[in-house]
């Protein structure tokens, strides 16, 4: 039984901090939990913190894109934060540019980004 990645809530934003090695089952569980939580908490933003992730493969890359697509369908914006340089280089070499996923350098900047886009949406 693989452990589940916890989904934390800050206001109307959900925070997922990935601290463990990602196995395929963990990733699938996470997608499921996240979709449930977005609906249950009517969240409008999801932050995925991958500061602790050192190794990625194409599966993880695709997971990020999938989570972003699921969230967008449920009207929540996804921001991936804290990607390490080595991880970024690997993803580029794998040909994954994660179009449609917003990114920020760290958690703080990610929160600021979501806050900005929320006020932008209210103004319109």
């Amino acid at each position: 039984m693989s452990e589940r990645v916890p989904v934390l809530r800050i206001g109307d934003i959900l925070l997922v901090s990935i601290q463990v090695d990602l196995e395929d089952q963990t990733v699938l569980d996470l997608q499921e939990d996240l979709a449930d939580q977005i609906v249950a908490r009517s969240a409008r933003g999801v932050i995925i913190d991958i500061t602790a992730v050192e190794i990625v493969d194409s599966f993880v890359g695709r997971m990020l894109a999938t989570i972003a697509s699921i969230s967008r369908l449920l009207d929540a914006e996804t921001v991936v934060v804290g990607m390490r340089p080595a991880v970024a280089i690997t993803l580029v070499e794998l040909g994954l540019s994660l179009g449609g996923v917003r990114t920020a350098l760290d958690l703080e900047k990610g929160l600021a980004l979501l806050r900005r886009s929320a006020t932008g949406a209210e103004l319109q």
Binding site: I89, S97, G110
Partner: peptide, 8 residues
Amino acid sequence: VAARLMGA
């Protein structure tokens, strides 16, 4: 692209 992935 890599810089963009990191949020810059």
